[in-house]
């Protein structure tokens, strides 16, 4: 485990950290156990029950096709979390590899990587993702690719800054004087010491990625129907906003609660690990 267990303990002793951890655990469990929890098939239409109020039969009401909103939100959690976690994981792994190589070897490779990364850093993530989806075509897979590329710059910069700072540590020179090659220095010393802030940044970026996924879904560029996605659900809710406002409110709440929980957890993790300064270096 790269995050020391003592830090995790400290995190769970603060009310903010504990609360965020509990909410996150509930959301993740709901996503995993969706088939067990969901009272209805998320895709089952029942036009006679369209736009029903929240009540005993449908806890959060139904949408314009009469689909159970609660079931769709729970399945939507699967989409959001899968996209968020997968794309950020891909982004983190690629960014760490690029950043570590650029920071460690320097030279022309570093200059090219830094230039491309700074260039992409100057675009807002949403714009970058929209351009990429315009190229790749809408869908779940292209959403994940677009999000992972949109966040690549952040992880590359952060890892590069960490590795550059760490490589002048005396223990790196000591390892080289013992006869170690670049592989040993990078994988046994530099990356293990650089990884903690990157993981925390990844945690926070997952929240942003969920918002980005919802935004793309809202524009109809993300997961395609009938796969439920919080963003797409909100989008369809805009047409019924005066008849059935719950169609847009509940998916919106789901997004807000998830992202706030992730951010609070990440923030508490930063404090517990005492790495606020190191995160800023990127």
């Amino acid at each position: 485990m790269t995050v020391p267990s003592s830090a995790l303990g400290r995190l769970l002793r603060t009310p903010r950290g504990l609360g965020a951890a509990i909410v996150l655990a509930i959301i993740v469990l709901a996503a995993i156990l969706a088939p067990v929890i969901a009272p209805y098939d998320y895709a089952a239409q029942n036009l006679r029950n369209a736009n029903m109020d929240p009540g005993a039969l449908h806890w959060l009401g139904t949408d314009e096709f009469g689909r159970d909103l609660f079931s769709r939100i729970i399945y939507g959690a699967r989409t959001s979390l899968t996209v968020g976690v997968t794309s950020i994981s891909i982004s983190m792994v690629c960014g760490m590899a690029l950043g570590a190589a650029a920071g460690y070897f320097g030279g022309a490779f570093d200059r090219v990587v830094t230039m491309v990364v700074d260039l992409s850093w100057s675009f807002p993530e949403i714009l970058l993702a929209l351009i990429l989806i315009a190229i790749l075509g809408p869908g779940l897979a292209s959403t994940m690719i677009a999000i992972s590329i949109a966040y690549l710059a952040q992880f590359t910069r952060l890892t590069r800054a960490q590795v550059m700072a760490l490589k002048s540590e005396t223990y790196v020179e000591a390892t080289i004087s013992l006869g170690a090659g670049s592989g040993h220095v990078l994988f046994r010393h530099l990356l293990p010491n650089a990884v903690t802030p990157v993981i925390v940044a990844g945690m926070l970026a997952t929240g942003d990625a969920i918002i980005l996924e919802a935004t793309l879904g809202f524009f109809g560029l993300g997961a395609q129907p009938p796969t439920p996605s919080w963003g797409a659900m909100m989008s369809s809710g805009t047409a019924q906003i005066f008849i059935a406002p719950w169609i847009i409110i509940f998916p919106g709440l789901a997004i807000a609660i998830t992202v706030i929980a992730i951010n609070l957890f990440g923030d508490a993790l930063i404090d517990a690990l005492d790495i606020r300064q190191r995160l800023r270096e990127g």
Partner: peptide
């Protein structure tokens, strides 16, 4: 071999002393 000026940064903070002393053998 070399002994360095700053003992505070010449040991990897993530390595136990035993790991640190075994590293020369691992590398070689």
């Amino acid at each position: 071999q070399m002994v360095f000026q700053d003992p505070y940064s010449s040991l990897d903070p993530r390595y136990s002393i035993a790991d640190c002393l075994l590293e020369p053998f691992a590398i070689q």
